[in-house]
Design a protein around this nucleic acid. Structure first.
Lengths: 204, 204
DNA sequence: TCAATAACTGCAACGGTACAACTTTTCACT
DNA sequence: AGTGAAAAGTTGTACCGTTGCAGTTATTGA
């Protein structure tokens, strides 16, 4: 009954139980949220459904919103890779523009039934939208480091940090009259010009 | 005993009482915070000191942090004025760079004993620092509107909105190795280049 | 077998909100 | 001027998400 292929590291009983508890919490949370709505489900309900105390729940997840987002690390890796492994001849802002656009459009794809319902839940719940935004912006430091490495700038270089922040922020610049795509395009136009001048870039 | 010179608008009894309650709360909060430290003072302590219920406290102030910041509107007006009334020949990014730099340096001035202690309290309390940052970033909309008006761009123009966001964000781009002033300078260098290209600016 | 460690628990309290009262102030109408 | 109803300010209670703390239980490795 042991299937080594699904368990890359042989976990002890303790770590297995811990992972099981965590999974039970996340599953119960998503199920209840989809069933009754985010606001109608209390943290106590979720803890009860997973048969643990609320104290334990918060040892596994830092907040109610975090019960729904179990990825984070993977997203940051993809972002860093988009810059590091960009096509030859592409400038860094161009790679970022592409990635930001793609990661926004992916939500429209209704490949998976579960995923679609998940996206709807997030978009209909202000708390979850705001939490997702903060997760996104928290990648600023890692992105700045990658940009500095790619350009040979010293680690912590302010220009790189500025570009990292601005590129991430483009995603949330939508104003009332304009649609998101052109807002992003215009913001990146501003960034690409400034960046090319600041770096003296010869790239595309 | 009536002194009309101190009361520009003749307030009714109700509004006078309301203002008094509000002031009593703000005073009690600042006094207790300075005396015992922000974390050591609970919302109930403040409400008790001002002799109102906690429910009433939150009708006057939206959060514990807000008890300390009673300005807001004035700050936004100054920011908008810095752009609208900038010296002739100055570009908008230059006016913003100047204002951001000035508003940061003003904290160093120890003109007023009370003010100095207030600044120390804010800087030593993470919650208050974060709250101040959000207050600052919330001016994005008003600033974007002003920039659009000044350049003749349509209201809600994405480029203007982007510049507004980025200019405000420069204040918080400090990374580990670098000091705040050069981080701001570098971020603005990026913005000014991008802005001039985007607008086709003939200004300084 | 035993001590160290890590997960878990219950409880009290925090900042903050919703709700249904209750009191005071205001203001239009007679 | 007097009355009465709407509007605004205040209150207590109960609850929310969240944290700290002190104590219990289960797993680990020597």
């Amino acid at each position: 009954m042991t299937d080594a292929s699904t368990a890359p590291a042989p976990l002890g009983r303790r770590e297995r139980k811990k992972a099981a508890t965590r999974q039970a919490l996340a599953d119960a949370a998503l199920r209840l949220f989809l069933e009754h709505g985010y606001d109608q489900v209390g943290i106590r309900d979720i803890a009860d459904a997973a048969d643990v105390s609320t104290t334990t729940l918060f040892k596994h997840f830092p907040s109610k919103e975090a019960l729904v987002f179990d990825e984070d690390a993977a997203l940051e890796a993809a972002l860093v890779a988009a810059v590091r492994d960009r096509p030859e001849g592409w400038s860094i802002p161009r790679a970022l523009r592409e990635y930001v656009g793609r990661s926004r459009r992916n939500k429209g794809d209704d490949a998976d039934e579960h995923f679609t319902r998940f996206v709807e839940l997030v978009e209909n719940t202000p708390e979850l939208r705001e939490y997702e935004r903060r997760m996104w912006m928290r990648h600023e430091t890692a992105l700045a480091r990658t940009i500095a490495e790619e350009t040979g700038a010293p680690a912590g270089d302010p220009t790189c940090r500025a570009l990292a922040h601005f590129a991430l922020a483009t995603r949330y610049l939508t104003s009332e009259g304009t649609d998101a795509d052109t807002a992003i395009a215009r913001a990146f136009a501003l960034l690409e010009h400034g960046w090319n001048t600041a770096i003296g870039g010869a790239q595309d």
